[in-house]
């Protein structure tokens, strides 16, 4: 098993782009090509806890130009002979195979990635809600036989789960349908919002019931939005809610 792979069903596929940009965590076994001292390995791993430069490997889905990636942390876990076990938290698009190779270069003994398991993709982690393909097949059959909704709700989660780490803006019922039609979110529609929103940041627009309406790009900071009486606060980028879910209130201008 290689760990966390969020699977998006039908309509929720539109939201996975939010996941692509979110950080990842891996547990990795790195194989050294020659013996090295544990202390030295620990020190070199710490050196990589930084902004690193990487060129995507030959076989990659992206353009092969040098790019910068943030390594949030590398925690040494264990060492057994030439096998080094570590945990790494990194920005999306970091190549761990490349990271292992580079660590080997700095160590001077060369190294390669032996095994890798993803332990986090954005808000998704290894814990109670992670299921195997066998679980999915089994629970789905159980549901079809017993017609008990709780079975289905046990292994499938609402797409809003994807947005746990995305800053949120909650809006009035009367503002929802306009956003569903692609309108930008304006200040009077905002009821509450999270701290640390800054201009240009991707935010999630939600109803008071917690349903996601759209993904948007903030055009002002949390502090500014709080003080705004009118004007656009976020540009709607991706509508996720079906039009007409909430009543249309924007022709008359009042709810």
């Amino acid at each position: 098993m290689t760990g966390v792979l969020p699977i998006a069903l039908e309509e929720s596929r539109k939201i996975v782009q939010a996941l692509l940009l979110s950080g990842k965590e891996y547990v990795c076994v790195m194989k050294l090509h020659r013996e090295a001292k544990e202390k030295q390995v620990r020190n070199v791993l710490k050196e990589f806890e930084d902004t690193i430069y990487q060129r995507p490997p030959l076989r990659a889905a992206v353009k092969r130009r040098l790019r910068m990636r943030r390594i949030y942390y590398i925690d040494f876990l264990e060492m057994d002979g030439r096998n080094v076990l570590f945990k790494v938290g990194c920005e999306a698009g970091t190549y761990i195979r490349k990271l292992c190779f580079d660590i080997g270069e700095v160590l001077g003994c060369a190294a390669h990635m032996q095994e890798l398991r993803r332990t986090r993709a954005g808000p998704f982690v290894e814990n109670g809600d992670m299921v195997t393909l066998h679980d999915v097949a089994y629970w789905f059959m159980e549901w079809q036989e017993q017609k008990d909704e709780r079975i289905l709700r046990k292994f499938i989660q609402p797409m809003e789960k994807v947005l746990v780490l995305v800053p949120k803006i909650y809006v009035r019922d009367s503002a929802v349908d306009a956003v569903c039609h692609g309108a930008n979110l304006t200040a009077p529609g905002v009821l509450s919002l999270e701290t640390k929103i800054s201009k240009g940041l991707t935010v999630a627009v939600l109803t008071l019931k917690g349903e996601v309406v759209a993904l948007a790009k903030a055009v002002a900071s949390t502090e500014d939005i709080l003080n705004m009486g009118h004007g656009v606060v976020a540009e709607t980028k991706r509508v996720l809610m079906l039009r007409g879910t909430y009543p249309k209130c924007w022709k008359s201008g009042e709810a």
Binding site: T2, V4, I7, F124, V131, L133, E149, Q157, M159, K161
Partner: peptide, 20 residues
């Protein structure tokens, strides 16, 4: 979100899968 009718719930659902 957690109270959506079953069919909608699936359509707007995600699975945290342990990839083989």
């Amino acid at each position: 979100p957690e109270e959506r009718p079953v069919e909608e719930y699936m359509k707007y659902g995600v699975i945290n899968l342990d990839k083989p």
